[in-house]
Design a protein around this nucleic acid. Sequence first.
DNA 1: ATCTATACTTCCCTGCAGGAGAGTAATGGA
DNA 2: TCCATTACTCTCCTGCAGGGAAGTATAGAT
Lengths: 120, 120
Amino acid sequence: MENKAEIEALVNEIIGRVADKWTMVVLEALEARGTMRFTELSQEIPEISQKMLTKTVRQMERDGLVSRKVYAVIPPKVEYTLTALGHGLSEAFCGVWIWAEKNHAKIHEARRKFDVKAAR
Amino acid sequence: MENKAEIEALVNEIIGRVADKWTMVVLEALEARGTMRFTELSQEIPEISQKMLTKTVRQMERDGLVSRKVYAVIPPKVEYTLTALGHGLSEAFCGVWIWAEKNHAKIHEARRKFDVKAAR
DNA sequence: ATCTATACTTCCCTGCAGGAGAGTAATGGA
DNA sequence: TCCATTACTCTCCTGCAGGGAAGTATAGAT
C-alpha cells in the first residue's frame, strides 16, 4: 500500500492541473460537440487566445485527455477528440456542473448579503 | 426562462472561482476535520501562506461556503465551519476526487509516453 | 505573382497571484 | 515589565499567466 499523503498530494496536483479554467472549458466543448478542429474550438470559445488554446490542448494531450489527429494536408488539419480518460473526467465533473447550476443563485445571494454587511 | 448562454457563463464563473487550488484544499480539510480554527487550518495545509489562507477563507465566506464564528476573547479565536452549501460543493466534487484517485496512474503513464515521444 | 487558409510559434508586455516577513491589538501569565 | 498567543493586515518583491500581434510553412486557386 502506498503512502496516503503521497496519494493525496498526487490527487491534489492532478486536480489543480486538470481543473484549471481553460481545461474545463475545452473539456466541456469537446464533450458537447465531439471531435473538433483547432479553429472550431477557438470559435466555440472566443475568449481564449490562440496561444492559450494551443497550450491547453497540448497539456490535455500530454495528460491523455484528448487525442490529436494530424492530417498531412495543406493547409493543415488537426482534429481533437476526447479519449476515454477525458470522457471519464468530464463525467466526474458532471456533479460539479449540476451543483453549480442548482446553486449559483444561492451563491449570488450569499455574496450580496456579505457585501452589504461589509459595507457598514 | 433565462438566457442559456448567460447561465453557462455564470456557471463557468462560479466553477472557475470555486475550483481554484486553495479553495479545494480548504474545502477538503474542513470536510475531513469539521470545524477548525485559523491556526489549525494553516497547520493542516502548511503549503499555504497566511495571506492566501485569509483570502481564500474570506472568499469562501463571501460565497456562502463557510461560516465564520468569532469569539470576543483575547487572544482571538475564530472558527470556520462548512455551511450546507459548502458540504454540497464538497459532495459534488467527490466524483472528481474519486476519478483522480482512480486515474492518476493513467495520467502519469500518458505523460511519460508523451514526453518520450516529444524527446525525439 | 499574390492571396488565402490553417495550425501553430515567438516576442513583447502587463497585471496579478502569491510568498516572505514585519507590524498590530489586547490580555494573562512569569 | 516583558513575553507569548492569535488572527489577522500591510508592504515589498518576484515570477508567471496570459493577451496581442506578427511571423511561418505550404500549396492550390486566381
